[in-house]
Design a protein around this nucleic acid. Structure first.
Lengths: 337, 337
DNA sequence: TAGATTGTTAATCGATTAACAATC
DNA sequence: TAGATTGTTAATCGATTAACAATC
């Protein structure tokens, strides 16, 4: 029986390996084992993704230990057995050895949004031929404070090296991995108008590995049953189409009055995430993620902020005027008493 | 000389009246004085908008005092004069008499977003014929906690009555006022593709008093110089068109590579707020508000959240499995030692 | 070794939640 | 008066900022 390459677990007999995935892996390790020989998925995952490994790589300190608990949920179990504990402590530093997180740490949405801007910045740096970037380099490009960048990144692992910074290409790879840019994400688009108008739209989404696998519309006949080379099905066929294509996400771009009905339909058909582009918000039961991108709402918020900034400026000006020329008092105002 | 109707200020001689607006008014009082007779703008504003007034309305306690400082920036000045202080304290309760806010309180964007959902909820209640709604009614409809609704609203004034709730129509009016739904907001649209595709789009914006006063495009010839009954001008003519139409806001719906250039162009032309719909973010100098509505970014964030929820569930399941059948240990795993 | 830069721990800030006095 | 509901004050929570030890 082949010994596991990492020297700690007998991965060959691990049922997680048999399942072809490491359940807790935040780095979407789902397909690694399918290709592997005798090496365990954790090792393959770590090296493939350029993440420092523990027992194999040459780095003196394993920087992956902090996340190992996530990568393999069996670890906590092994540590409690005396026969394994010695080997474990040989390979992993003590501070994280007995920590067992109750659940995956919650990542705020704001952080995710920022990760995306880091990715864009890295693309620029790489196209400029920069090999290493520091958090302050990225801060200048993105406008996000350097310590916040470091803090955001450190939630997912240790990607940088003190005094050197981050390897731009490696970090880009890791961010793409974290954001799931590498995986195909099958999506159904409901409401064919936008696609009909902008033929290149589907391709633009596929750049980010969102593959529009189906298009539906309340009135497929308006489009002669097809747009951009794709069949347009009716709302009645949506559920069937979803199970056929395996779509997990949906973009809802129908009229305001249909938005909620279409959402309900999609939820019943088992869609897990919905992006709603109508001018009204929609809701879904717990377990289904919904994001409402309401352009009118954004515009209203924008207009509110503009107006308020404007008024605050005028108010400040008035205050300055009053504080300044005191003698002007009598000329501009008198009491009614 | 006409005495001011509120009995406190001699508004007729107030230079703010001459200017035709009350600078600090959060309720967009800018046009009130133009129509008024001898009554001061503050009084007109308060009654017209159904906000409780102080010296004229019959309510024993003036609930508007908290905001009066904002409404008329001259108040603080008058209070410091002994001859006015008695009259002031007759009309306004003591607790707010000497408070002088340094600036307009900052309203978080999240609050603005919520105000819009309150407005939608109120519309529903009103269409159902409901006259009074409590914060818990609204909470049920919007999903926002009742105390948060009350807190949000109280930042703009006192709109409710204890034990009765909020007058639905009145509150709707106030919210519309606060959000600036009553005012025409002239906007220029750059990138004609969306409009060409969706002929009714401009009308949908005008429902919220966003009036698209001009349309520009990098290639106006693609549209034979017009879409939806509007002339399409080239990017070169944008600045001219903006000053001609008085557009204060802009919607940028051009290709990713042009988005930043168009933004810069608009900023130079004096636009105050920009809504960017490209798949990349744009930046503008301080003083210009920018909102990036990046659909791909939203979709990525959505997909991240879905995936993470999914993985957290699996992890929990695994933990439950491990905690449960201990005897299964030897059958699924063995050590390599 | 000195300077630079990371990842982490402690302090601050802001938003939400809870509690409650005031009011109808 | 009792019950309901507001607007506000205090407590909690979470995110950002600052400070710094560890590392290269």
């Amino acid at each position: 029986m082949a010994k596991a390459i990492c020297g700690i677990f007998d991965c060959v007999r691990c049922d997680h390996r048999a399942k072809g995935k490491c359940s807790g892996c935040v780095l979407e390790n789902h397909t690694v084992l399918a290709e592997g020989g005798d090496a365990c998925g954790i090792y393959l995952c770590a090296t493939r993704k350029n993440i420092k490994s523990c027992a194999v790589c040459r780095d003196a300190v394993c920087s992956f230990t902090r996340n190992l608990e996530m990568v393999c949920p069996l670890r906590g179990r092994l540590e409690k057995k005396r026969c394994y504990s010695r080997r474990l402590s040989e390979h992993f530093d003590q501070k994280s050895a007995w920590v067992r997180p109750e659940s995956l740490p919650k990542i705020p949405e704001k952080t995710i949004d920022r990760l995306q801007s880091y990715l864009l910045a890295l693309n620029e740096f790489i196209s400029l031929g920069v090999a290493n970037v520091s958090s302050s380099d990225m801060s200048r490009k993105t406008g996000v404070k350097d310590y916040l960048i470091r803090r955001d990144l450190s939630q997912f692992g240790e990607f940088g090296r003190p005094s050197i910074g981050y390897d731009a290409k490696r970090l880009r790879g890791c961010l793409a991995e974290i954001l799931g840019l590498g995986d195909e994400k099958p999506v159904i688009w409901v409401g064919a108008l936008h696609i009909a108008a902008e033929p290149g739209l589907l391709d633009r989404f596929s750049d980010y590995k969102f593959r529009i696998v189906a298009v539906a519309d309340p009135n497929p006949e308006h489009f002669q049953g097809q747009v951009g080379g794709m069949e347009v099905v009716s709302l009645r066929q949506v559920a069937e189409k979803i199970s056929e294509t395996g779509a997990v996400g949906a973009i809802v771009a129908v009229s305001d009055d249909l938005a909620q009905d279409v959402t309900d339909l999609l939820v019943r058909a088992g869609i897990q995430g919905i992006l709603n582009l109508a001018f009204v918000g929609v809701t879904a039961p717990a377990g289904v993620c919904v994001r409402n991108v309401n352009i009118v709402a954004e515009l209203l918020t924008l207009s509110f902020i503009c107006r308020r900034t404007h008024e605050a400026n005028i108010l400040d000006q008035d205050r300055a005027d009053i504080a300044g020329p005191v003698e002007a008092e009598n000329s501009t105002l008198s009491a009614s008493a």
